[in-house]
Design a protein around this nucleic acid. Structure first.
Lengths: 348, 348
DNA sequence: ACAAATAGTGGAAGCACTTCCAAATAAATA
DNA sequence: TATTTATTTGGAAGTGCTTCCACTATTTGT
């Protein structure tokens, strides 16, 4: 039933080699034969068998993507970038979506994605690569590129969390704030650490000192503390402080957390930016709906770029490992407020 | 370099047939041989070649999913359901994500997903299947199952839009509203039509008449009018009406649109539910953050079920076509307000 | 017109597996 | 113990394609 190149060969009275050559645009086949074969192929409604091609070519034309489906939808836009780029290049995407932060499931996906003959390469998103796996994997001749996470032995594309956090904090300083706090996710997460560093650097490099009372990090493990609940809890702690000991502005390490922060404020009948100014991080879709000032990452571009890296790597397996970092940019909306002086003028 | 079953066969001094039998848990292989082969396979760190298996078995163990990435993130949760279910079954997912509503891209994905030897079946999400393709496809012996869309010739899993809209509208009626409006997406979209029908039915079956002035449908083509902008524009029209001619409650055909509706209200210094009560449809993540009453679809379950259908179909290609419909349920939050009488008592 | 180079072609071998068939071995029956 | 039956086993054939090698047909040069 399914038509193969043998059927074409027979019908067009040529050899299978010739058919293959025509189909793959190899030179060295006369125009008349080429045309005849093409005609027959079309008439028979021929479709190449993907797996057979893959087997013979030792190439799957597929790349695997392991993506955390939970938290912040960061991946979604990156995925869109990848999608657009990759399909124009004739590759397909094999999707492995983690629904929760389960190391076992992660590993099983990793194993599966890296199975021989399944995909030409794998892309890993926002997931910490277990060291033992990295070691094991290095010897396999299959490229892996890391997006929003890093490992010295593999190509990576990341966002400069430190710079983003710095920009957010600096913005508060420029607005005239002096009591600037931060609500962080769980510090075991590298991005959380980096964002904290940026925050601290902005403070100290601009003549403000780091005040432990204004800094809350989460101990919640789920989603590494990048959750609405974590933000809520931390903000509640902040609001336990007497009114005049509270920070006047808070940089929150993610937009989802900022959602929780905002809820906590509402529960205390407080408003951003009037009572406390807020800046988030990520620029999830929600952010624009609620007017959250936040730090935006060029997600789509990261996706596109990561595909480029993958192809480079596929073409040249032994090139030097590269690490690319994008600088995120501050998107100013309502929750950060305006210049303090201006505000004061209006208020009083 | 890569180890094949021949390597195992040689090392274990058995034939390749035996190796294959062991690896596939066929009976008729003595315990000792089985053990020996297994041991060697493990020592050599053997991994079966996915494509070679696929070719020989005439089965890819992959299913393709064509999904619109744009609008309402409905698909995301469905995808999670699919993901969880499918991987436990040993299948992989090939992802084809449409970034925009581009028929050409859609068709190219469709072609690709249905390519011979690429996937065992394809799942189509929220996408209208072109009739010519349906006809063409029917003859291919590859299952296709439709999620959130339908076609008589293929299995489908949908949501009962009519029932959902009915429930939303009925809720307003129960709350005592009499001037109940609807802001709809573009009526060319089947779900939009169905939701409109449900709205209308609820009205007429409960002694209220349909008032053309309270109904606004969108002419916007982008996303079939399921967008924030569309909602905003329609609501602005509504708000052009003199205050006492406006509806007191509005059912909006999607949550994204409801976002726009709410913005429009804010721009007029109006609040839900105090000034106008609002109910949406979809229950996107946003909805709970902003307290939007809405109609929720069992998305995860739909994903899980769709995988089940796919496997059934894979096992029995000639069974009767099935159409499953889920009844969505009303999630009551803040934007719909409370009983009119109660409200009045508080207000005055 | 003839040799030498080139273009075009058929088909075998290989890709890494599964599966079937026949042969060999072991177990069970008489 | 001889014979039948059941269990194991090796390996060839097949899956649909690419690629290489040898061979033929066509040009080109002289």
């Amino acid at each position: 039933m399914p038509v193969t190149i043998y059927d074409i060969a027979k019908t067009a009275s040529v050899g299978v080699g010739t058919v293959s050559r025509v189909l793959n645009n190899h030179p060295n086949v006369s125009p008349k034969t080429r045309e005849r074969v093409l005609k027959v192929a079309h008439e028979l409604n021929y479709q190449p068998h993907a797996f057979a091609q893959g087997l013979a070519r030792k190439k799957t034309n597929t790349i695997a993507a392991i993506i955390p489906f939970f938290t912040n939808y960061f991946f979604l836009e990156v995925l869109q970038g990848i999608q657009d780029k990759i399909l124009t290049l004739g590759y397909d995407i094999m999707l492995y979506g983690l629904n929760e932060n389960d190391p076992e499931q992660f590993e099983s996906y990793l194993l599966r994605a890296t199975q021989k003959g399944r995909a030409d390469g794998v892309m890993l998103f926002s997931l910490r690569l277990p060291e033992f796996f990295a070691q094991k994997y290095k010897h396999i001749n299959q490229p892996m590129i890391l997006v929003d996470c890093a490992h010295q032995d593999f190509d990576s594309i990341t966002v400069d969390n430190r710079a983003g956090a710095y920009a957010a904090t600096k913005h508060f300083i420029d607005l005239g704030h002096e009591k600037i706090g931060m609500i962080n996710a769980n510090p075991i997460s590298p991005p959380a650490q980096q964002r904290f560093e940026g925050y601290k650097a902005a403070l100290t490099e601009n003549g403000l000192s780091f005040n432990q009372n204004f800094y809350k990090s989460s101990k919640i493990m789920k989603y590494d503390g990048f959750s609405r609940e974590a933000g809520y809890v931390s903000m509640m702690e902040v609001l336990d402080l007497p009114k005049d000991e509270r920070p006047t502005a808070i940089f929150v390490s993610s937009d989802v957390q900022a959602m929780g922060v905002l809820s906590a404020m509402r529960d205390h009948n407080l408003q951003a930016p009037d009572d406390i100014a807020i800046v988030g991080f990520d620029d999830i879709e929600l952010a624009q709906h609620i007017g959250l000032t936040t730090v935006s990452q060029p997600m789509y571009e990261m996706g596109v770029l990561s595909v480029g890296r993958m192809l480079d790597r596929l073409a040249n397996r032994n090139g030097a490992v590269t690490h690319t970092s994008f600088t995120p940019k501050l998107i100013i909306r309502e929750t950060c407020g305006q210049l303090k002086t201006k505000l004061a003028a209006v208020d009083e």
